[in-house]
Each structure stands twice: as structure tokens, then as C-alpha cells.
Design a protein around this nucleic acid. Sequence first.
DNA 1: TCTGGGGTCCTAGGACCC
DNA 2: TCTGGGGTCCTAGGACCC
Length: 407
Amino acid sequence: MRRIAHLDMDAFYASVELLRYPQLKGLPVVIGGGRRREDDVLAKLREAYPEHEWSEERLHEIPVDFFPRIAGYTGRGVITTATYAARQFGIGSAMGLMKAAKLCPQAILLPVDFDQYRHFSREFKRIITEIAPVMENRGVDEVFIDFTEVPGGQREGGRVLARLIQKSIFDATGLTCSVGVAPNKLLAKMASEFNKPNGISIVSPDDLQTLIWPLPCRKINGIGPKAEAKLQAHGIQTIGDLAQRERFWLMENFGKSYGAWLHDAALGKDDRPVETHSEPVSLSRETTFERDLHAVRDREELGRIFTRLCEQVASDLQRKAYVGKTIGIKLRYDNFQSVTRDHTLEQHTDQAALIRQTAGQLLKRVDLSRRIRLLGVRVGSLQKQGFTDAPSEHSQAQLWGDLSATD
DNA sequence: TCTGGGGTCCTAGGACCC
DNA sequence: TCTGGGGTCCTAGGACCC
């Protein structure tokens, strides 16, 4: 039988921060907000105590009182992760920081440090693949692992191997994770939530009715807030309720494809393989402004931001060696409504000037009379660099010239 | 006091082609 | 004068996930 594991790092960002600042253990800590230079704890520290030679090695000596509190936070940031101590106050990820400040003003607020998280992400994934090579990435802090062919992967339903991986990760990094093992990805993903933090749970097909069916439908990966509301409107609360419905009825009410998938999911059926490789489909950069901007009144500022986004996407493409030919823009208005426009070029590109020029044309096709809170630039239809029709450096240089002449 | 940033996949209509 | 039917690509929006 297939043995698939889902491994989920426990409060990953917050736990990585606690490795640097162990003095914060047990305290409510939230990570999030802007990435302004002045948010950096070490920078503040150097400023406040210039007589000390503060370095990365001495971060644990920073007194707790020194850390910034969330109270009085103003701005549009949201929480990326909260420690378990902070979650006691009802704080959770994606919550606005200003709301969190009300719930727990004494919580410590740390800025996000993606370089640090990426480092630990690579580290725990390296440890996993040394033990079990068939691993699928699901973002920085989650993976699927195929235990089926791993020696010992079937012992105690996978518990022995899960324990070995947990211990290896902890010994090397000091981080804990939760693991669920089941016959497929769908059930493994649910299982990894059963015993958090630092837990292991094994789900077998026999457990479907006792462990899975009592859960709310929302626990299925792929049922979000919209689908949940619609299911509830039909009197379907639990996965068990969903399993009682006829496949045909679900297909009529939720669409042929989604309905059939809902039915399979409720019965614990899922035969997707663990994918060890994937190619990106698109790359994008977007930013929410500190205050809403107006296309006319804030023309210059908007133009600078727009150009910077194009340059960032282009540099991302070049660094990762991709070229794309569908250029897209995204706007979010002050009422949170989003619009997108895109255009497919004749040839693939990774050049900021061409992206900027195309995106500029797209901008003319949206309503610019309303206030804007977010602007984004995307490049899709990607191909690996070197197998394409990308134009020469010469024509790109000409384009830059044209652009600066007209802009 | 509203609601980040980076993605994937699906749907649906229209253009265009054979 | 009377409207077929696939297939593919493009575009816009939206649901969902981490």
C-alpha cells in the first residue's frame, strides 16, 4: 500500500526567530508587517547601545524589554506567523496587525526575515531527502514525502520513519514539525494537523469514518471559505455529510469536475503522485502602498513604483534563467476589488524595458480614476532561458532609449 | 482599524483555424 | 441566405493555498 507523509513545520517563522532570540520563548510573538530597515532588531540595538560590539552570536543577550511591542502599530501589515503563546489571545496568520494589537498589545513584533527562513527551509528539506528521496515541495515549511519504497517506510504504518525524520530535523536545527502518514496526500495532509505541535499521526483507510468524517468540510485541502459557505447552505457541515451526497447531485450543484472531486475527497480517494520536480508557470511582484494612490495626483510616485516592480520581475527572471511572453498587470482599488490585464508578446523576454513598456500599455486599459491600493506586475508563459526566440541585447538597448525619450 | 505577497488551477467567452 | 463542430490560444476573473 502507498504510504504518503505530509510534514508541516510547527509555527515555522516564529520558531526560527526563537532560535535567534531564545529569551522570547513562551512569550507572545508575532512576525509580520513591513520590511522597513528600521524594523530590524539588530539595527535598533546597535543604535541604542553603540558601545557594544553586537553581533549575530550575541542576539540571545538582548533584554526582553528591548524588543518592540505591537501596541500602537499603525500600518497595513498582516501577521505572517504567531507563536503558540500569541495564538492563545486569538491571534492568527493573515490577521491585520492593528487588530492583533488590540487583542494582545504586549505581544512582541518582529519583522519577517525571509533569507533566514529560506536557509532553514533548505536545511530541513536536505535532511529529509537524505532519508527519503521522493519529496514534493509545498512552500517553505511543508512537504509531502513518499514513504512507500523507503526501507522501513511501512513499519508501524510509517511511524518509525516519521519519528526518525522528526528527530533528525530537530537534532540538526532545533526545530519541531508535525507529520501525518496515510495512503494518499489528501489524508496525509489532514493527518498532520491531528497532533500539533511535534506530533505524528497515522491514518489508515479504516479510520475514514471515525477520524475524517466528523471533521468540518473546510479541513479538506481545496475547500475554502466560498465552497464551505455553499456546502453549508445545502446543509452539509461535515465531511461525513458530504460523503452521504450522491456524486451526481454534487456534480450538478458544484460543477462536473469540482463536484466529482468533492465526492472523491469525502471518500478519502486521491491518487495524485508525489511530484519531485515542478516548473514555474509565472513570476510576479506586487506591492500594497502605505496609503492609497491616485493615478493623476500621485503620478510620479506610481510611475517609480511601477518601474521598480518591472525591474524586480526582470531580475527575478534573469536570476532564475527564465523568459516569459505574457505580461500582466494587477491593480487593487481602495474597495479591495482587483482587476488584471495581460498581453502576450510575439517573443519571450526577461528584459525590464520591454516588460515596462508592455505593462504601461496595459495600464491604459483599466479605470485610473479610482484610488489604488496595490499594483503588481506578472510575467507568465515561462520557458527556460536558452531555448527561445528572445531578442538581442541590441534591440533592448534601443527600446530603453525609446522609453526614456517618451516617458 | 480592514484585508500581504507569491503562487497554481479552473472557467468561460471569443478569435481563429481546419 | 440559415446558422456544424472540434481544437487551441488568448484574456479576465476568481477560488484556493502557503
